[in-house]
Amino acid sequence: MKKLVIFLSFFICAIFFSQILSSNLEKKTLALGEVNRFTVKIDNLNNQEVKAAPKDELLPFHFEEIKDSIGVKPDIYERKIEFSIFDEGTYTIPELEFRVGEKILKTIPYEVEVVNTAKKGDVINDIMNNKEVKLDVKDYWELYKWYVLAALALICLIIAIVIIVKYGRKPKDSPVVATNQTLKELDSLKKKKYIEEGNYRSFYVELIDISRKFIVKQYKIPADVLLTDDLIHLMKNNNTISQDNEKVVEDVFYRGDLVKFAKTFPDQQTMEKDFSEIRDFVKRSSKDIEFENLRKDA
């Protein structure tokens, strides 16, 4: 009997003193541009600090956040977000992490369907009857002259590009120039002190943007237009980048994607490590280019 009383006491304490996270999505189906509301509430904080994605950056990029209000009391944390979506389709609010002290709480995922309320069969009636107007050559010229001039300008531009490519002197792309320029950009990123301030989202956005531009210049791989999965797959099949450098790009880029969608919160040590590895990758890249040139000449 005594053990039962002790067990019930522990159970009641766990209920009353543990943090409870709840979330609510007002509407699951929206019209284009309609405002919806998403609420997250955490009870029993006991004066503990809550860490989450920065203001106006909690939801994925398809969700246009209109208002992001955060209310904090000693025992309650409440975050209310108003948003709209302007493209048809089904969109997902993923699991969102909220750190309370050393404990991580997660919301449940939600799906939002966005529909166009305009019906295909809707009839649009003119206010006035259409009138027939006869046009002469001058009228047609006034209507279409800009299209004609634009077409002529495009033809001239294409001819100029062909002449430059065929007869112009092609500048030599130096791996060292691309490396030095990217190292300067990384030094500028370091001076912004995102790592020291814990601004992990801005840090990874700029770090990956610098890395993508560098891969385009140094390896001629269209990293600026490829998704991370497609880029990693292309690098592995391309064989231009060494396996060590591929591993660095793969690890840092995937972590950057998780940070972008608020699925992970890297600490300062992790950000320092990723910065150092990208910097080393940039420095080692010239060896990849030298090896690729030797392989082509063989």
Rank of each mutant, 00 (worst) to 15 (best):
197 E>Q: 14
127 I>H: 10
40 V>E: 01
243 Q>C: 07
164 I>C: 07
32 L>T: 03
45 L>F: 04
21 L>M: 10
50 V>P: 02
36 N>G: 02
272 E>D: 12
278 I>Y: 00
20 I>G: 09
200 Y>I: 02
26 E>D: 13
33 G>P: 02
260 K>W: 06
142 E>L: 13
193 K>N: 14
228 T>C: 05
225 V>K: 14
180 N>S: 10
38 F>V: 03
54 P>H: 06
142 E>D: 15
129 N>E: 15
281 F>H: 04
112 V>C: 03
60 P>H: 03
190 K>G: 10
234 L>N: 06
298 A>T: 14
192 K>N: 10
215 I>N: 00
94 P>N: 05
202 S>L: 14
47 N>M: 09
23 S>F: 01
85 I>P: 01
170 K>D: 03
239 N>F: 11
174 S>F: 07
157 L>Q: 04
237 N>W: 08
247 K>I: 02
121 G>T: 10
48 Q>N: 14
95 E>I: 06
261 F>C: 04
52 A>R: 00
275 F>N: 01
68 D>H: 04
90 T>G: 09
223 A>Q: 04
149 L>P: 04
248 V>I: 09
270 T>G: 03
29 T>I: 12
66 I>T: 05
60 P>W: 06
2 K>S: 10
295 R>S: 09
275 F>Q: 04
262 A>K: 00
13 C>A: 13
143 L>V: 10
113 E>W: 02
229 D>R: 04
